[in-house]
Each structure stands twice: as structure tokens, then as C-alpha cells.
Design a protein around this nucleic acid. Structure first.
Length: 502
DNA sequence: TTCCGACAGTGGGGTCGCAAT
DNA sequence: ATTGCGACCCCACTATCGGAA
């Protein structure tokens, strides 16, 4: 029987070293000491996940808890697993109070160290420097199997705890038993950013539109259809039109990977927010979702994940020719550039360039898929900055950005960003902002609005919260502009001009 | 010895469902 | 009826380790 205290000790060992090998060794050591029944919950805890998924508890709830710690450790992993499971089930009127009571009862059995661990875990911010990647290595080490065998089982099962359980119980043969299963989503393959289109065009590739919607993975087995998101959450009931469409395809069974989004009457993409409003809305068909498939992982009994993309695209062309994403296979550089322009002209985000010889691999491994999007820049005024957390504690990190008011008023806030800052720049702005400080509160230092920063962004969107009715999307700092002042910053009109159709 | 792939962390805007006010 | 919380959609970027070249 392994105690929560052992997990906490291991987590501490993991957090105090930066060496991945040391982190892996520490976790593997604990995994090797577990009873079989403890492997799943312990794997989740060590990877910073809650066994069974999120429990409806966040920082606000946790911050309100104050419980005297137990003097000695007694909590078992199974007890913690059970307690979190009960918290997750609390619903309905008075649930906040009952949730607090259940959490209080759990924390009362925990020592001070255990309480700290549980609060960070429940808040979803364990921050020990080990998540899925390190855990996959640790499972492989503990079970004495190749990392790739673990990685593959994790991709196909979608679950670390089940992967760890199989690896420790039956080694490589048990891991090899994981196949693609209809009705069980696979962890999706992702694209990493490319410098530009030309640098992404290496070898034999296909170039596809990149759409601004939500990732979907559709499984069909006979008349049974399931739809999953990128994080493997099932959304079948929210998207009946997609279910009907897939049920109408000419096949017995299929697994398709793609993107879905809402279109306007002219067939142009609606803003991402509008597509998003469809998720969770039960059976609302007011705004129809359209699917665009770009991969086929299974067709009529044949699993295709290990085949090269070119073969999977053949299967896709066979089963859903009218729902394929617009693309060009092995285009010339000129044709690829044309397709990129066409995608933008049609209102889409850009393109994804994919290696035709690559197999399907979860995550961003291998750089086989590269996304290319146009970038915009704006010169904006820094209005304030918020103190950072974690490794940014003690630094002013998150910038408040404003656009110039053409009528001469104070700058109009259009968003925040913490991205693109090196440690050096972080240190510089922490000093500089305090020199320019006008006032501060608990979280934020406000400064005189005359420091200009060049911001790179993907675009802007209409905003219900910012005063100008517009907000930046994916903003990051490029550089400070000491040569500019607030009067030469970009105006709110320049920001609004980046709105779709603007 | 240098380079580069993979990871983890640090947060951004927005929408929904649900419970509390 | 409105507000706040939590979950989950989309996401970029830097620092770092450790194996590849």
C-alpha cells in the first residue's frame, strides 16, 4: 500500500531538479512500488491530472479553504481517488457548500505538505516540471519497455493511467494490444508553426487550407456515430448535423479527422466565437456546422494510422470526397503560394503543410505538419502590467495594451499579452515600468501611457468586454519602440481595420 | 562540440452551463 | 435577471534538457 505522502515526496523530488532524467527516475521509482490497483490513480496524480478528470473545483473554491493539517500522513492513494470522485459528483442546489465540506474533510486528513500538493493538483497547476512527456518516459523506464511502445499505446488509448497499468502489468505485449478502437478517440496529431511557406515546402507534401474552427474526430461503426474534440471530449449530442452527415457516408466503419466551423450565407467562415457558441448548446441547429476532413485513420475494418499520409488521403478520397478540406498535393512553390492566397481570400487562417510520407503521430512530434499563417503588427501603448506567477514571480509580466484614440482621449485598451518576452526583457520592463508608475493595486502596476511596444498578432475579433469593442488575438511582443510616442501609436481605427471584412 | 527536437510553463480571448445572488 | 466560477474551445512563445549530428 502506497500513501499519498509517497506521491508527494516523489513530486517534490521531481520539482527540485531540472534534469528530465532525474524527474523520470524519481517517478519511475514510485511507479515500480505501486500495487496494481494503485497504478492508475497514482499515474494521474504524478502527471498532474485528477483521476477521472476535472472535479468542478478551481482557485476560487480552493482559496476559501482553511483547514488545520493532520500531524501524520495517513491518506492512501485509493482514498484520495475516491474522495475526488465524490467531489466530482456533487451537483445541484447547495453544491458549492457541499463541495467545500467534502474538500475540507479531505484536507483535514492531509499533512501540510499533502495539503499543498492537493490544492495545486485540484487547481490544475501542479507545476513540478513533469506532465505527459516525462510521464511517458517514466512509464517506459518503470516497465522496462521502449518509450515508443508507451507513446503509441498512449496515443491510441488516449489515457496515461490505462497505458501505465498495461505497461506495468504486461510489458510490451500488453501495450501492443492497444489498437485503434471504434468509439475510443485517438490523441490527435498537431501542427507546429513554420517560419514561412517556403521553408515548410520540404520533400513531398500536401498543402491544405487551415480553417478557424474546432478540431473534430468522428468515429462511425455501422449506424453508431461519435464525435470528439481535440481533448477527446465527446460532443456527439451537440452536433447532430455532423452525425447525420457521417452516417450517410458510403462505408460500414470509419474514423475521420478534421475541422468544423459555421459558415455564413455566402459560404465564408463565421468568426470563431460563433462556431464556438455551438458547442455545449444541445441540439441547437440555428447555426449549422460544416465538416472539413483532412485525414482518415480507419476505413471498413482497416486501421490506417501507420500508413503514410498519401495512403490515408486515398482512403479519405474514397469515403468522403465531397467533404475533403481544399488542398493541393505536391504543388509547385507557385501553386502553394497561390493556395495560401486563396485560403486567405476565402476568409480562412492560412495553410497547413504536411509530409506525405509521415504516419499519424499524436502531438507535435516529428514536425510532419507545419502551419503557416500571415502575421500582423501594431504599435500599441503600454497602459499597465501585472505581476507574474511561477518562474515569473517578482517580474512585471502581463502587459495591458491600448490603441490611440483619434479624438485625443486616453488610449483605449484592446488586450493583454505576456508572450514574446525574454528573461532579459522581463527584467528590463520590471525596472522601467516602476520608474514610469502612476499608481498600483494588488496585481497591477499602472504606468504613464507613453511607452510604445510593437505587437505581433494573428488578427482581431469583436469583444464584449473591451471598451473599443475589439480585442487582439494571440498577441505577442516583438520589440519596444523607444523611437515612438503615444501620439504615433496605432489608432483604434487601425485595430478595427483588422476585423474580418474590415 | 554544437545544434535542434521535445517539453513544460506562462498565461491570452471567448463561450457555455450551472449555481449563487 | 445578472454575476461569478469552472471547463474547454482556440492559441504563441521562451527556457531548458539531452540526444542527434
Amino acid at each position: 500500500m502506497v500513501l499519498l505522502a509517497d506521491v508527494v515526496t516523489t513530486s517534490h523530488e521531481v520539482s527540485v531538479t531540472r534534469s528530465r532524467k532525474a524527474k523520470t527516475a524519481a517517478i519511475a521509482g514510485l511507479l515500480g512500488r505501486l500495487d496494481p490497483a494503485e497504478v492508475r490513480p497514482a499515474t494521474a496524480l504524478l502527471a498532474g491530472e485528477l483521476p477521472g478528470g476535472r472535479a468542478g473545483v478551481g482557485w476560487s473554491t480552493l482559496a476559501a479553504l482553511a483547514v488545520a493539517p493532520a500531524p501524520d500522513p495517513s491518506l492512501t492513494i485509493s482514498a484520495v481517488d475516491a474522495a475526488i470522485g465524490e467531489v466530482r459528483l456533487i451537483k445541484g442546489s447547495g453544491s458549492a457548500q457541499r463541495r467545500t465540506a467534502a474538500l475540507t474533510a479531505l484536507l483535514a486528513q492531509a499533512t501540510a505538505d499533502e495539503q499543498q500538493f492537493l490544492v495545486r493538483l485540484l487547481g490544475g497547476e501542479l507545476r513540478q516540471g513533469a506532465l505527459e512527456g516525462v510521464m511517458v518516459e517514466a512509464i517506459a523506464t518503470a516497465a522496462g519497455v521502449p518509450t515508443d511502445a508507451v507513446r503509441r499505446a498512449f496515443m491510441l488509448s488516449g489515457r496515461l493511467p490505462a497505458t501505465a497499468e498495461a505497461a506495468l502489468r504486461g510489458g510490451e505485449p500488453a501495450l501492443a494490444e492497444f489498437g485503434l478502437e471504434l468509439g475510443r478517440p485517438v490523441r490527435p496529431m498537431l501542427a507546429s508553426p513554420a517560419e514561412d511557406l517556403e521553408s515548410a515546402l520540404v520533400g513531398e507534401v500536401t498543402v491544405e487550407y487551415k480553417l478557424d474552427g474546432a478540431r473534430i474526430q468522428v468515429h462511425r461503426d455501422g449506424d453508431e456515430v461519435h464525435v470528439y474534440t481535440r481533448t477527446l471530449r465527446e460532443i456527439t449530442r451537440s452536433v447532430p448535423e455532423l452525425v447525420d452527415l457521417v452516417r450517410g457516408l458510403d462505408c460500414r466503419s470509419v474514423v475521420l479527422d478534421g475541422e468544423t466551423l459555421a459558415l455564413d450565407d455566402g459560404g465564408r467562415p463565421r468568426p470563431f466565437q460563433e462556431t464556438m457558441s455551438r458547442f455545449g448548446a444541445q441540439n441547437s441547429r440555428e447555426l449549422l456546422l460544416h465538416p472539413y476532413f483532412f485525414d482518415c485513420l480507419h476505413l471498413d475494418g482497416a486501421d490506417l494510422v501507420d500508413l503514410p499520409l498519401r495512403d490515408r488521403l486515398d482512403a479519405l478520397a474514397k469515403v468522403a470526397p465531397q467533404h475533403r478540406i481544399p488542398a493541393a498535393v505536391t504543388p509547385t512553390a507557385e501553386r502553394a503560394a497561390e493556395l495560401f492566397d486563396e485560403a486567405l481570400a476565402a476568409g480562412h487562417e492560412g495553410v497547413v503543410v504536411k509530409d506525405l510520407d509521415s504516419g499519424y503521430a499524436a502531438g507535435r512530434r516529428g514536425r510532419a505538419w507545419r502551419k503557416v499563417k500571415p502575421e500582423h503588427t501594431l504599435d500599441l501603448v503600454v497602459l499597465a502590467a501585472e505581476w507574474g506567477h511561477g518562474r515569473r514571480r517578482g517580474y512585471l509580466s502581463n502587459l495591458h495594451l491600448g490603441a490611440r484614440d483619434p479624438d485625443g482621449g486616453p488610449p483605449i485598451m484592446v488586450g493583454k499579452t505576456f508572450k514574446g518576452l525574454t528573461d532579459e526583457r522581463l527584467a528590463w520592463q520590471t525596472e522601467e515600468f516602476q520608474r514610469r508608475e502612476t499608481h498600483r493595486d494588488d496585481w497591477t502596476v499602472h504606468i504613464a501611457p507613453d511607452l510604445v511596444v510593437e505587437i505581433e498578432l494573428d488578427g482581431v475579433q469583436t469583444s464584449p468586454r473591451y471598451p473599443g469593442g475589439v480585442a487582439l488575438r494571440f498577441a505577442r511582443v516583438l520589440r519596444y519602440r523607444p523611437d515612438k510616442d503615444a501620439a504615433s501609436a496605432d489608432s483604434i481605427e487601425a485595430v478595427r481595420a483588422l476585423l474580418p471584412g474590415g
